[in-house]
Design a protein around this nucleic acid. Structure first.
Lengths: 207, 207
DNA sequence: CTTGCTTCTTGATATACATCAACCAATTTT
DNA sequence: AAAATTGGTTGATGTATATCAAGAAGCAAG
């Protein structure tokens, strides 16, 4: 159950075998079925979750009922509403499972105790947050300066294999900040462009 | 010169007087005149900067020449292109001074040495990144789900006093991801709305 | 088999915002 | 004092994307 977690630790920091074993005790293993919630809007975010298996999403729902996905979390990623987790205030976000999941949960208290016992982990979490910030800033700039088509292209370029199979298009649209209809039209446009290019290739082959 | 920095440290962690004095040695004091660059696109981001005095902006420039401001940094804030600083790759961002500034710079090496000597600072930087992430995520959700007017209102609500005086409108527009023209129109709309409300109040007063 | 979901597509229309162009007022530069 | 620069406003028009509405294809369930 902890293989992936320790693998991820090893990528960033050097823990002794004892420290790894010690860290186990702070986590709560939890299975989540598809569509079940880890966090619902209005509740306090009690856990940060490490994803051993499965896929989750972090999202808000506007007054009009449209969903906006802030983050996906695949195997090896962490997910939480940092603000609510940090402050103890009710969350404005929801987290639910897009597939059956196996998670390792950490309460605020457990996190603090763990960081006290294993200070090296401060570094691990700092690096993690640094990476999240970099990615989020990039997305922010993208959403302010790029067209929907550019953002879509960047996204599928970044995650070539995983995305299409595991994430339905309307959720991709929600992540990109566009409607499913717009995404559909973008895909059609791209497809027809490619057809034109294919046609050109064939012509050249004939020559 | 280090008063504000130590004040900020004290808000998050408990350093001894010796640790504080030790930390001084890792920083490079630097003054920057208005419009001077701390980082230019294409260069590697060699420093994270703590702002003792003044105001800076982190921004990108698109192919067409339009600027997109990712972050402002007032007194007491930190600023850097995290990605370039972390990886050593050339940066896609620019940082320049909007006012005359007094900064405390930290190179990658100095940062690492400082964190090694004063591990408590890992915690400080972790908390800092956590807060940055929270803010950036909120802005991302906003840019995906809110209208320009809503975002503008939220912004001036959040920073009532400081913003209007120190940040010219076209830079606010750039931060909000809209053109100066659009921001101008939004402001006019809000102003006329308020006039209507004032008129109502007067009517009621008369009654 | 039928009924009902879910996912995706397509068309017609509406709207928020960008773009282009002109202009003004206040500062700064020369 | 004139000229240039900076910051902001306004109008006409264009465009990316949303919204509303309808329907098709695949899959699950009674």
């Amino acid at each position: 159950m902890f293989e992936l977690l320790f693998e991820k630790f090893d990528e960033k920091i050097n823990l002794t075998e004892e420290e790894k074993q010690l860290s186990r005790s702070f986590f709560i293993p939890k299975k989540l079925r598809k569509k079940q919630w880890l966090l619902q809007e209005g509740d306090v975010c009690k856990y940060v979750a490490f994803v051993e298996k499965g896929l989750l999403r972090l999202y808000t729902v506007t007054d009009k009922g449209t969903e906006h996905i802030t983050q996906f979390a695949f195997e090896g990623w962490w997910i939480a509403d940092q603000l609510s987790f940090l402050t103890g205030e009710p969350s404005a976000y929801n987290i639910d499972a897009m597939e059956d999941c196996e998670l390792l949960l950490l309460t605020k208290q457990a996190e603090e105790q763990m960081l006290e016992k294993i200070p090296k982990l401060e570094r691990y979490f700092r690096i993690l947050l640094q990476n999240s910030l970099i990615v989020t800033q990039k997305r922010l700039v993208g959403s302010l300066s790029q067209t929907a088509e550019e953002r879509y292209n960047d996204l599928i370029k970044a995650c070539p294999a995983t995305l299409p199979h595991r994430i339905p298009q309307h959720m991709l649209a929600s992540y990109l900040g566009i409607t499913p209809e717009t995404l559909s039209r973008i895909r059609r446009q791209i497809a027809t462009k490619e057809k034109v290019q294919d046609a050109r290739h064939k012509k050249q082959d004939v020559k």
